[in-house]
């Protein structure tokens, strides 16, 4: 079954990436203890989806593991940096089964550690010059700059929604946010730079955008669903945490649209109260209303449809890739993102 292949490659490439990261963190920790603090998130583990996508894309376009793993490591480090930032901005409690970084060290230190992770994440991209040649390394840097920009703007958009207490958002708005905040760095960027590395720059990276977007969007919606219905032990964040932080998920947006006027008013009120004051029973009520109005089922179907669209785009995206394990891995991702727990 293709899911076994995905699991195997995630483990293999994840391990390879983690080795590189561990090495870099240890060396850096000798310079300053902040890198030790920063090491927390990267070493907590995780699926290594982004790194694996990057490496698989690179290998499917002709690269070896060694030429791609540095860029993969860079991405995982930047990913950790984003997580630190997100957790601070969302006032999260937990991350990957343990307390969020700012809960352990305080906000100031966590923010600084996040910056440290960014620094560490950039370093491999500079080292790419010797690995890949100046031209390709520079292309990768350009892509990284674009990716980070999209991520920042995506987060900015989400923060504005929260501070404006935006209540009239459409599915399209949600998709736009997901495109910027999640899909770019989770799926689109790894595919693009992976292909760039593999094809030595001779590839039209525009072809990955649709596949990457649909895949990333399905991934994010599934993530949001798991936050409500997943197994807390395996999921790694508190259940219904998204409701607690007022995150504008597809489910919440749907609920806002279909709720009866009285319900909507109450919902708006719940969203307006600061997170610290939000009561457990209010959160439970929102969750129950989502069930009642079918918001959760609907989001699930939405994710399936997007995964289907990703499958459609796959042939066009991977027209220039070589057959083999890595290509099969990439083609199996749309199915896998829905079936993970």
């Amino acid at each position: 079954m293709s899911n076994a292949l995905v699991r195997d490659l995630l483990a293999e490439y994840g391990e390879a990436t983690l080795t590189v990261i561990r090495d870099a963190l240890e060396r850096a920790a000798r310079r300053d203890p902040v890198y030790g603090i920063a090491a927390d998130y990267p070493l907590r583990g995780g699926r290594a989806l982004r790194a694996s996508t990057c490496i698989a894309a690179a290998r499917a376009h002709g690269a070896t593991l060694d030429t791609a793993v540095a860029t993969a490591a860079s991405l995982e480090l930047l990913h950790s940096a984003f997580l630190v930032r997100d957790d601070v901005e969302d006032e999260s409690e937990e991350r990957r089964g343990r307390p969020a970084l700012h809960r352990i060290h305080g906000i100031a230190t966590a923010v600084n550690a996040g910056d440290a992770l960014t620094v560490l994440g950039l370093a491999p991209l500079l080292e790419n010059r010797t690995l890949l040649g100046t031209r390709v390394a520079f292309r990768v840097l350009e892509e990284a700059a674009l990716m980070v920009r999209e991520s920042v703007e995506g987060q900015a958009l989400e923060l504005r929604w929260r501070s404006d207490n935006a209540l009239d958002l459409s599915d399209d708005d949600y998709l736009r946010l997901v495109l910027k905040k999640t899909a770019w760095y989770t799926t689109i960027y790894p595919l693009r730079v992976g292909a760039l590395i593999g094809a030595r720059g001779k590839v039209d990276v525009a072809r990955f955008v649709r596949f990457g977007f649909f895949l990333g969007a399905a991934f994010q919606i599934q993530d949001d669903l798991l936050n409500l219905v997943g197994d807390p032990a395996r999921y790694g964040k508190e259940l219904n945490g998204d409701i607690a932080e007022g995150k504008r998920t597809l489910m919440l947006l749907h609920l806002l649209r279909v709720a009866a006027p009285a319900e909507r008013a109450r919902l708006a009120e719940v969203l307006r109260t600061p997170r610290a004051e939000r009561r457990a029973e209010a959160i439970a009520w929102v969750r129950e209303r989502m069930d009642h109005h079918g918001s959760i089922d609907r989001a699930r179907r939405h994710a399936h449809a997007l995964a289907g669209a990703a499958l459609h785009e796959a042939p066009g995206a991977f027209a220039g890739a070589r057959a083999g394990r890595d290509l099969r891995f990439l083609q199996s991702l749309p199915t896998w993102v829905l079936e993970r727990r």
């Binding site: 599915d171 399209d172 495109l179 649709r210 649909f214 939405h302 449809a305 997007l306 669209a309």
Partner: peptide
């Protein structure tokens, strides 16, 4: 599903 795909392509 139909609207989902339309919306995604639109965006």
């Amino acid at each position: 599903g139909y609207e989902a795909i339309n919306g995604a392509y639109r965006v």
